[in-house]
Design a protein around this nucleic acid. Structure first.
Lengths: 213, 213
DNA sequence: GTCTATAAGACGATAGAC
DNA sequence: GTCTATCGTCTTATAGAC
C-alpha cells in the first residue's frame, strides 16, 4: 500500500507537473499525505504514542485534524503507516548482514543497528517504535515483527545450534540495551561515546552470544 | 549458590516506612495512602505514566480522585512515591554487589538485576520506571538516579580503568536489553527462558564488559 | 480534497461542604 | 480525611459545507 519508503525528503517532488502557472494544484493529495506522515513520524518519535495527538500531527503538517482522520481513519493507523518506513532500511540491509563469514556476523549486525540509529532519518521511526512498544500492544507487535521475526530468526537460521534463537535474542538484547541507554534515555557517557568505539566494544560481545562458548 | 528468584515476602507495601518525606500522616490514614500507592504502582507498571490517570488510580483504590490529589498534590508526585519502593531493594543489595572478588562482580550484578525482575514485588515498580522513562522526563531522571548514579558509578569506582564508566554502562546495557525483551516486550524464547540459564549466559558477558579485554 | 463546527467525553486540578 | 461538584483544557472522531 504505502510502499513509499522515500526516505526523509518532504515529498520529493509532485508527481504531476503543474501545467498552469506555478500554482500548486489543490486537488493533489499525495504531497499532503506525505507531509502528514512526516509530521506523525516526528511527533511519535519525540513523544511516544500516547502523548502524540492527531491534532498535534495535523498542526505540524499544516492541515486540519479532520484531514488526518480522512486519510487514515484512526490514530493507530496513522502510527502504523508512520513507522512502516523503518522497515525498508532494515529489510534492505538484512541480507547483507546474513551474507559473509559467520565469525563476523556479530560485527555486521552491530554495524547495521548502530548505523540505523546514527542516521537521523531512520532514527526517528526507531525511536517511535521503541517509545511506543513499551506502552502499546500494537507497537510491541510491530517490534516483534521487525526485530524478532524478520531479523533474529534469519540470523538464528545461520547458526547450527539448538539454542540458536535464544542466542540471537541475547545478542539483540545487548543492542537494544545500548539503544535504550544511548538514544532513548541518554545516559552519559554512553550517550556521547564515539559510534566506532561502541561498535568496537559491542561487536565481539554480539559475536560471542551468537557463536561463542 | 543463591537462587536467582529473590526471597522477599510478597507484601512489601505494608512495611510502613517510618520516615517518609516531610509529612507524617496525622490522626489516621487507615492504610488509605498505601492503598492508593499500591493501585498507582499497578497502573503505572501496566500502562506507563501517560496512559495512567489519577482517576483510574483512585477508582482502583476505591477512593475519590480528589483524595489522591489531597495526599500527593500532582500526578508526578504520585508516580515518584509509587516507584520509590524500588529503591529500597536496590540500595540494600547494592553493597553486596560491590563486596566480593572482582572477577565475580559480573555474576553478582546479573543475579541482583535478574532477581529484582523475577520478584513480582520489585518487578512492578521497575516496569513502571521503564515504561515511563522512555516517554517522560521525570521518569527518565528517576532511572538515571537509580541505575546510573546509585549503581553504575559505584561499580565503575571499583574498576581501576579510565573507561570504567563506559564499561559499566555497556554492562548495564546488556541487562537493560534483557529486561526489555524478556519482561517488557516479552519476545520468545527469552521471555520463557529459565532465569538461571539467563544468568549463566549473561553473567560472563557482563563480567567481560567490566574487566575484560 | 480540504475545511469549519461540534459532538461526546477524559483529563488534571481546585474549592469547599461535612 | 473524605467527599461532591465543577472549571478549563485537552482529546478522538464525525457531519457536512464548499
Amino acid at each position: 500500500m504505502t510502499g513509499v519508503t522515500a526516505s526523509d525528503g518532504p515529498a520529493a517532488s509532485a508527481q504531476g507537473a503543474p501545467r498552469r502557472r506555478g500554482r500548486p494544484p489543490r486537488t493533489e493529495s499525495a504531497g499532503t499525505r506525505d507531509r502528514i506522515l512526516d509530521a506523525a513520524r516526528e511527533q511519535f518519535s519525540a513523544r511516544g504514542y500516547e502523548k502524540t495527538s492527531v491534532r498535534g500531527i495535523a498542526k505540524a503538517a499544516g492541515v486540519d485534524s479532520a484531514l488526518v482522520h480522512h486519510y487514515f481513519g484512526t490514530k493507530e493507523r496513522v502510527f502504523e503507516a508512520a513507522v512502516e518506513v523503518a522497515f525498508g532500511p532494515v529489510l534492505d540491509e538484512r541480507d547483507s548482514v546474513l551474507e559473509g563469514p559467520l565469525d563476523e556476523v556479530g560485527e555486521r549486525m552491530t554495524r547495521m543497528i548502530v548505523g540505523l540509529w546514527e542516521n537521523p532519518v531512520t532514527r526517528a521511526p526507531l525511536l517511535a517504535i521503541v517509545r511506543s512498544a513499551v506502552n502499546n500492544d500494537a507497537a510491541a507487535a510491530v517490534f516483534r515483527r521487525l526485530v524478532a521475526s524478520q531479523l533474529l530468526r534469519r540470523v538464528a537460521g545461520q547458526l547450527d545450534r539448538p539454542d540458536a534463537e535464544l542466542r540471537a535474542e541475547l545478542a539483540a538484547a545487548q543492542l537494544v540495551g545500548v539503544a535504550m541507554i544511548r538514544y532513548v534515555i541518554r545516559v552519559e557517557p554512553l550517550a556521547s561515546a564515539d559510534p566506532e568505539d561502541i561498535v568496537r566494544r559491542v561487536a565481539p560481545v554480539v559475536q560471542g552470544h551468537l557463536t561463542g562458548g
